[in-house]
Amino acid sequence: MSKLTESINRIQSLEELADGKTAIHCIHPMAKLITTIFFLVVVISFDKYSISGLIPFFTYPILLMAFGEIPYRSVLTRLIVALPFSFFAGLSNPFFDRETALILLGIPVSWGILSFLSIILKTVLTVMAVLILIATTSMDKLAYQMIRIKIPKIFVMQIMLTYRYLTLLIKEASDMITAYHLRSSRQKGIRLAHAGTFMGQLLLRSFERAEKVYVAMKCRGFNGEYHFASSERMRRGDYLYGLFVCTAFLLMRGINLSRIVGSIFV
């Protein structure tokens, strides 16, 4: 139960950061959304063995966290949730791609290890960028900007409603787990024999909730079209920010800064 409650608090604490008033929070949501998408594309575009080229991109999340006054801890703890997925996705690389790529301090490093590290670095960078975007921009503003860049409304609506009702679903599950444990005191977790009924109940409850929400929406005139709040216009500073950041990404993509810095010392 406490773990689920913790998860609720963790989700909410990141969202609360979006109410900040720092320079990063004040940048127009569109500028932040576009630069984040551009960052993701540039980072993913590196080839599968690239590591040195990715390192300079850490300046972006580090600078944003510093100027946006986002606690490193809150971003890093959420990052840990995403890491196992890419860890297991890349785990087989060192076994299949064993050819030595380089020798580091006398230890041979295979191409497989390089591609594995590259996957981990890309995950860290992209997840951090998205977490920082959420921590500096509220969900409703992001939703409106997603509509403006022509992401289909149905997807944006799905994201919004999932985001809103995730906390309620977790709370529902948390209440059910508490009720279960109160009547099975000597037991850890939910017994496999009960897991099916438990999940089924949760699914039925979520259907019921969805039905009620839909009816409430219909009662306030909803007819399938979701109307999002419009936001302020972009100012010159927002355009300059977007232009500057995207140019910096392109430069970092074209020029391997790690190699240049390394060659100064070697």
Partner: peptide, 12 residues
């Protein structure tokens, strides 16, 4: 509605 959580679904 009886339960306001069924009625309030926007982000703000």
């Amino acid at each position: 509605f009886q339960n306001p959580d069924d009625q309030l679904f926007m982000a703000s």
